Amino acid sequence: MSDEAIKLNNGVTMPALGFGVFQTPPDVTAASVEEALRVGYRLIDTAAAYGNEREVGQALRASGLPRDEVFIETKVWISDYGYDQTLHAFDKSAGKLGVDQIDLLILHQPLPTAFARTIDAYRALETLLADGKVRAIGVSNFMPDHLARLLERATVVPTVNQVEVHPYFSQPEVQKADAAQSILTQAWSPIGGITSYRDTGTGSTFDDPAITAIAAQVGKTPAQVMLRWHLQAGRSAIPKSVTPKRIAENFDVFDFELADTQMQTIDGLDTGVRGGPEPEAITLETFGRDIPEA
Score class of each variant (00 low, 15 high):
1 M>K: 10
2 S>H: 06
6 I>Y: 12
9 N>L: 15
9 N>P: 07
14 M>I: 13
22 F>N: 14
23 Q>V: 07
24 T>N: 01
27 D>E: 12
27 D>Q: 09
28 V>Y: 09
33 V>Q: 12
40 G>L: 15
43 L>N: 05
47 A>N: 08
47 A>M: 07
53 E>R: 02
56 V>C: 08
59 A>V: 04
63 S>G: 03
63 S>I: 01
64 G>S: 05
70 V>E: 01
74 T>H: 15
75 K>H: 05
78 I>P: 08
81 Y>S: 04
84 D>H: 00
85 Q>A: 14
85 Q>N: 09
86 T>V: 06
88 H>D: 09
90 F>S: 11
96 K>V: 09
96 K>S: 10
99 V>R: 13
100 D>V: 05
106 I>F: 07
106 I>G: 09
107 L>H: 03
107 L>Y: 09
110 P>S: 02
114 A>H: 11
116 A>T: 01
117 R>V: 05
117 R>T: 00
118 T>W: 15
122 Y>M: 15
126 E>V: 06
127 T>Q: 06
128 L>C: 06
135 R>I: 04
137 I>V: 04
137 I>M: 06
138 G>A: 05
140 S>W: 03
140 S>H: 09
142 F>N: 00
143 M>D: 15
144 P>Q: 05
149 R>T: 14
152 E>D: 10
154 A>F: 00
159 T>V: 10
161 N>P: 03
166 H>Q: 07
169 F>R: 07
171 Q>W: 01
172 P>I: 07
179 A>W: 15
184 L>Y: 06
185 T>G: 05
187 A>Y: 05
190 P>C: 14
193 G>M: 02
194 I>C: 03
197 Y>F: 08
199 D>A: 11
201 G>R: 13
204 S>H: 12
205 T>Y: 11
208 D>V: 03
208 D>A: 15
209 P>M: 00
214 I>G: 06
215 A>G: 02
216 A>H: 02
223 A>K: 08
225 V>I: 12
225 V>L: 13
228 R>F: 05
229 W>H: 03
229 W>N: 05
233 A>G: 15
242 V>T: 13
244 P>S: 09
246 R>Q: 12
247 I>F: 11
252 D>E: 13
254 F>D: 08
262 Q>G: 04
264 Q>E: 13
268 G>H: 03
268 G>I: 00
273 V>F: 07
275 G>E: 02
277 P>N: 10
283 T>F: 02
284 L>N: 15
284 L>P: 09
288 G>H: 06
293 E>Q: 12
